[in-house]
Computed example of a mutant assay.
Amino acid sequence: MTKISSLSGQQRLRQLARSQLGTAVRIEEVSQTKADTGDASPFADKHQQLAARSGAGINQTGLSLAERADRRLLMQKERQQLNLERIILLAQDYCPEQVSTQEVDPDWFQQYCQLVLDVSNGNMQQLWAKILAGEIASPGKFSLKTLHALKRMSYKEAIALQQAANLSCRSKQDPSGRIYFGYIRRPSLWQWLTGRGRAVLNLSQFGLSYPQILSLTDIGLLHSAEIETGELASGLSLNWQYQQQLLSGKVTKNVVLQYYKYTASGAELLPLLSVQPNQAYLQAIKLLLADVIEFNL
Rank of each mutant, 00 (worst) to 15 (best):
T194Y: 08
G140V: 10
Q191D: 12
L222G: 06
C169I: 14
Y155N: 11
S188W: 05
I179A: 02
D218Q: 09
A158E: 00
P175A: 08
E228F: 14
L193W: 06
I227M: 06
N202S: 08
S168A: 08
L117S: 15
I131L: 11
L147D: 07
Y112T: 08
N166W: 10
Y180L: 11
K172H: 12
L115D: 14
A164N: 03
I136N: 04
G197C: 07
I219Y: 00
Q212E: 03
Q162I: 00
Q114D: 12
N121L: 13
S224R: 15
L208Y: 08
L208K: 14
Y183C: 09
A133F: 09
L193E: 14
N166M: 03
T217R: 15
D218F: 04
H148M: 11
M153A: 05
Y180P: 01
A133I: 03
L150I: 00
G122P: 06
D174S: 02
K151S: 07
S176T: 08
R152V: 07
A165S: 09
I179G: 01
K151H: 02
S171D: 05
Q212W: 05
K145G: 13
L221V: 10
F142G: 10
S120V: 12
I227K: 10
A199D: 15
A137C: 09
D174I: 00
A199W: 12
L167R: 02
Y180E: 01
I213W: 05
Q162G: 00
M124L: 15
P187F: 07
L201R: 04
P211A: 07
L214A: 02
K141F: 08
T194I: 13
G207L: 01
L150M: 09
G220D: 10
L216H: 06
D118A: 13
L222D: 14
S188T: 15
L132Y: 11
Q125P: 14
L216S: 04
L127S: 12
Q125R: 13
L147Q: 02
S168L: 15
Q111E: 08
E226Q: 04
Y112E: 11
L150D: 07
K156L: 10
G140P: 06
Q126P: 06
A158F: 14
K145A: 14
N202R: 14
Q163R: 03
Q173P: 08
S224C: 15
L115W: 12
G207D: 14
S224Q: 05
A158I: 04
S154K: 11
F206L: 04
L144A: 15
A164F: 01
D118K: 05
M124P: 12
N166Q: 02
H148I: 11
L221H: 00
L144C: 09
A165H: 03
G177V: 07
S168M: 11
K145E: 06
W128L: 08
Y180D: 01
L115E: 13
A164G: 10
Y180Q: 05
Y155P: 00
G134N: 03
L214Y: 10
A137I: 09
V119W: 02
V119F: 10
W190R: 07
Q114T: 14
F181Y: 13
V119G: 02
S120E: 01
E228A: 08
S171T: 12
V116N: 06
K130R: 15
Q111N: 08
H148G: 09
R170C: 06
N123C: 09
V200T: 05
N123K: 13
M124I: 12
Q125M: 15
